[in-house]
Amino acid sequence: MDVERLKLAATGELGATIEIKTQLLARLEAGRGAYLDARDVDEPSLALIQTIEAAAAAFAERTLPFGLIEPSDRLCAAYETVGLFAQLMSRIAPDS
């Protein structure tokens, strides 16, 4: 499987989020999967969550592997708060 790990920054502030979106788009266009290492996410934001969700839909549509690795407690809590906890569960990826 052609999958690359991308590490999510500790903060979900806009700059970092736009950066990760750009990286994800590049992977998508290259036809390669992506796993987001989410263990360090300390200050999740809505911007980050919706970017992850849009990415999940995009990778799924191209049937490319996509997932979150070890989402931090804060990120899990934020997912739950916005009403996406079930989706989070289905995004957790095995490492490879």
Binding site: T17, I18, L25, A47, Q50, A54, A57, V82, G83
Partner: peptide, 24 residues
């Protein structure tokens, strides 16, 4: 209790992370 409306979430390429696409 939270019910999310994510129907307006655009494709990744069109997504502007600074514009909230969700409603509740």
């Amino acid at each position: 209790s939270v019910e999310l409306d994510a129907s307006r979430l655009p494709a990744l390429a069109e997504l502007d992370p600074s514009v909230c696409a969700f409603a509740w």
